[in-house]
């Protein structure tokens, strides 16, 4: 099982996760009107969100719930990003300019309440899995998706504990490239690498 995506309280993350310096700068939590300052601020927010999610291995964010987590809420400063500003930040990250590190679940026209956080994009995951298979000489071997994501063999890999849907999506990329083949039904998906 993936770890709790929304650790509660500030003590747990602050012990091992080091927030970026700006996290302690009060204006960081107000979106700046000056375009230059703003783009720099959005970049910093993006860095902050991605490193936070990577550390806590968060693959999806539910905006409303995330607002009260240390990600958006600095309890020491008593400052937090407002819902609208947080949405602006995530939208920026979803844009080309922001490197498409966010993808709203349900598409752009959706409710924009839940999103993927691509601290690695699906292509990057696909590469990671592909190169692991190659490095361990397991071409031609058939895996279940569960084995790849939660199996003993991949425990040391970065993609261990990956969201199942994200894994599926990443593997589709390998399939498209002709490097793997997916078969089976719903829960029983298997994959074979060539």
């Amino acid at each position: 099982m993936p770890p709790d995506p929304y650790p509660s309280g500030t003590d747990a993350p602050s012990t091992d996760f080091r927030f970026i310096a700006h996290y302690n700068f009060p204006p960081f939590f107000t979106l700046q009107p000056n375009p230059l300052t703003r783009s720099s601020q959005l970049e910093t927010w993006s860095t902050h969100i991605l490193s936070y999610c990577r550390h806590h291995r968060i693959f999806t964010l539910t905006l409303i719930d995330a607002l009260s987590t240390p990600l958006f809420h600095n309890t020491i400063l008593k400052k937090k990003l407002s819902l609208n500003d947080a949405r602006t930040v995530l939208n920026w990250m979803a844009s080309k300019e922001g490197g498409e590190r966010i993808e709203w679940i349900g598409g752009k026209g959706g409710k924009e309440s839940k999103c993927w956080v691509f601290w690695r994009r699906p292509e990057e995951w696909a590469d990671a899995v592909g190169s692991w298979v190659e490095a361990t000489g397991q071409k031609g071997v058939v895996f279940t998706l569960y084995e790849l994501g939660q199996g003993e063999a991949t425990r040391s890999q970065e993609f261990y504990g990956i969201d199942r849907e994200l894994l599926h999506r990443s593997l589709q990329i390998l399939v498209k490239k002709g490097k793997a083949q997916i078969f089976g039904q719903e829960d029983q998906l298997g994959i074979k690498f060539f």
């Binding site: 700006h22 009060p26 204006p27 910093t44």
Partner: peptide, 28 residues
């Protein structure tokens, strides 16, 4: 780009702009 703002409970405050200077000064 010299200052930046902070909306707080007690109104608008202006700070030195550390948001942009991060690249040279504070960084991660």
């Amino acid at each position: 780009g010299v200052l930046c703002r902070e909306h707080g409970l007690d109104g608008l405050r202006f700070w030195e702009n550390w948001l942009v200077e991060s690249k040279q000064g504070l960084g991660l």
